[in-house]
Amino acid sequence: MINFGFTLSPSSRIDLDKANKPDFSRLAEIEPDILKCMACGSCAASCSTVNFGKMNLRKVILMLTRGEEKDALPLLETCVLCGKCTMVCPRGINTRHLIISISEAYKKAQKTERK
């Protein structure tokens, strides 16, 4: 293949072929509710940390399904587990347990991230 020489800046494209599948399937095993999201954004809209953080569960779920956990995990840092998102979710996702489970399933990814 011809190399056009643009390799200095990393590609902005999501490469689904390289998506992290094992971590995601482990997560889906611990908390199958992650598969129920229809991306309505209610959780992000009602998040009680909206004034000071970037917490956005819809985005986190979406990014994890795309294998972009590097961008997803830092968003969870400001979560206070208040449970408002559980109350508003139209699909009845157990969001609090999902957040805890994400932290658990991606512990390794998070550790390497911090290094």
């Binding site: 954004g41 992000a44 809209a45 998040c47 956005n56 819809r58």
Partner: peptide, 12 residues
Amino acid sequence: VKAEDTLAGKPV
């Protein structure tokens, strides 16, 4: 009214 503009990825 509070919602998330899911296409912008930010709460509105």
